[in-house]
Design a protein around this nucleic acid. Structure first.
Lengths: 140, 140
DNA sequence: TCTTTACTTAAAGTTCACTTTAAATATTAC
DNA sequence: GTAATATTTAAAGTGAACTTTAAGTAAAGA
C-alpha cells in the first residue's frame, strides 16, 4: 500500500501509542525520524522494520535501556555481532529462569488450591490453635 | 528459639526490608502489630505465619491490593472460603497464561539466536538492500 | 559513658515505561 | 468555511511497591 505513514498510523499498525513511538525516538531506540514540510514525522519502510524489531524485543521483556545498547552496537558495525548475540542469549537465560520460577509458583498455588482443598482455608494464615477467633471478625 | 522478634530481625528472616513490613501493615495486609513499652514493634508466631503467607502470595505475583482483599475476606469469616479459593484459582490462571506467553517468547528468542545464527544479525533491523550503510557508523 | 545501631513517624523520593497535558499549528471531514 | 481530529514540543504526571529521608527516641556494645 502506502510507503509512508504518520505517527498515528504507524502506532496503530503495531498496536502501540503514538507517544510510545516518540518516546522510543527520544530514548535513542529509533534514529531521529524524518519530518515533512510541516514538521510531522514520516515513517518509511526502514522505520517500520526497526519498530517491528523494537516491539519484538520489548515484548520479550528486554528493557528500553537494553535495546538502546543493542542499537548502539548495531551502529558500531559488524564487529559487534557477537556482543549483540550475547545480549540475546543472556536475555534468553533470564527468560528461562523466569519460566522455571513461574512453574514453581504454579505448582505451589496448585498445592494451595487442591491438596488442602477442604482444610487449607481454615489454616492458611493461622491455625485454629493459634487463632481461636478464626471465623469471626477481628473485634468480635 | 525466641518467640518474639524486632522488625529488623523479622525482615531478615523473610529476606525483605523492615520498611516493607511497615508498608504491609500500613496497607492492611497485616493487623496493627503490637508494640513494646518503648513503642517498638514486636512480631510473634502469629505475625510470622501471616508474613510468610503474604510473602508467598507476593512472590507468586499477587498484587498488594489483591492480598488485602484476601485478608479482608479472611476476617469476614469461614463463609468467604469459596471466594478466597476463587482468588487463588484466578491467579493460577493468570500464572499459566503468563507461562505460556513466556514459552512463546523463549521460542522466538531461540529462533532469533539459532535459526539465523550466521545471517540474522546482518538483517535484524534492516536488510542490506534497504540499508546500504550497514556496518558503518550513522554519519560515515 | 559514649557512640553506634535500631527503631519510630509522616512524607517525599525512586524506578520504569510510558502517558497526559498544554499550547500551538496543521490537516481532514463535512 | 468551519469544526473536529491529528500533530508538534517540553514537561509534568502515572502506578505499583516499596525505599529513603528527616528528626527524634531508645537500646546495645565497648
Amino acid at each position: 500500500m502506502k510507503d509512508f505513514y504518520s505517527v498515528g498510523e504507524t502506532a496503530k499498525m503495531f498496536g502501540i501509542a503514538a507517544s510510545a513511538l516518540r518516546y522510543y525516538e527520544s530514548e535513542g531506540l529509533l534514529e531521529p525520524v524524518a519530518k515533512n514540510e510541516s514538521g510531522r514525522r514520516v515513517y518509511g519502510p526502514k522505520e517500520l522494520r526497526r519498530i517491528r524489531f523494537i516491539v519484538t524485543l520489548r515484548d520479550a521483556g528486554i528493557p528500553v535501556e537494553g535495546i538502546r545498547q543493542y542499537v548502539d552496537l548495531f551502529y558500531a558495525g559488524a564487529e559487534t555481532i557477537p556482543e549483540r548475540k550475547q545480549i540475546l542469549i543472556d536475555h534468553l537465560d533470564r527468560l528461562r529462569q523466569e519460566a522455571e520460577h513461574l512453574n514453581e509458583l504454579i505448582a505451589q498455588l496448585e498445592q494451595m488450591i487442591s491438596t488442602y482443598e477442604d482444610t487449607f482455608m481454615k489454616r492458611e494464615m493461622d491455625s485454629r490453635k493459634a487463632d481461636p477467633d478464626y471465623g469471626t471478625k477481628p473485634g468480635s
